[in-house]
Computed example of a mutant assay.
Amino acid sequence: MTNETVEPIRATEIPARVGRFAMRFSSTPRGARLARRLTANRLETWDIPYDSTAHDDITLIVAELAANAVRHGRVPGRDFRLTLTAVGPSVRVEVTDTRSEGEPAAHAPSGGGDSGRGLLLVAALSARWGWQPRGDGPGKTVWAEYQLPCRV
């Protein structure tokens, strides 16, 4: 036997976050704002503090995907759904709308307007992102996965 000591893994090195938040919102600018605000609150409860880069990045991803659901995925009278899933060092954001046509594309906007940059931001901030047809009805789910730093 040797007298070597094994240094234990510190809890701050491997985040032990596990959580899920899902809610439907009206497909309106007010619904998108509420989704962003509730995301900010939920991240705080998951120990991703308001003043951190991760908090700002994830909240911005939600804001962009919710705005797209309202602007491009809106079907009158139907809501969009936001799902946040935290598992260890990652947070997955999913926004599901009810419009089936139109594939989301992250490309440079044509013209000089401010429109069309949302998915470019999502692509830049997330570790990966994509979309899939909605499994439980018409529409699609756009998702992004954010990798948290070891210390938030």
Results as ranks from 00 to 15, higher is better:
V70S: 11
D47L: 05
H55V: 03
N68M: 08
P76L: 10
A63T: 13
A69R: 08
V75T: 15
A67T: 13
I48S: 02
V70E: 11
I58A: 01
P76W: 09
P49H: 05
A67H: 14
D51M: 02
L60A: 14
H55I: 04
A63P: 08
R74Y: 10
V70Q: 11
T59R: 06
G73Y: 10
H55L: 03
D56T: 13
H55W: 11
N68Q: 10
H72A: 12
T45V: 09
P76S: 12
A69Y: 06
T59V: 11
R78L: 13
P76C: 10
D51F: 01
A66I: 06
R78K: 15
D51I: 00
A67R: 10
S52M: 01
D56Q: 13
I58H: 01
A69H: 10
P49V: 01
D51L: 01
E64M: 07
R71K: 15
L65I: 02
L65R: 01
I48Q: 00
E64V: 03
G73L: 09
A67K: 11
P49R: 07
D51G: 01
A67Y: 08
I61A: 07
A63H: 15
T45H: 07
W46Y: 04
Y50M: 06
G77L: 14
Y50S: 08
A67N: 15
T53N: 07
V70D: 09
I58S: 00
D51R: 04
G77P: 14
V62R: 03
A66Y: 04
A69L: 09
A63C: 12
G73A: 11
R74T: 13
P49E: 04
I61T: 08
A67C: 11
S52G: 02
D51K: 03
A63G: 15
A66C: 13
R71I: 06
G77F: 14
A66H: 09
D56E: 12
T45P: 00
T45D: 07
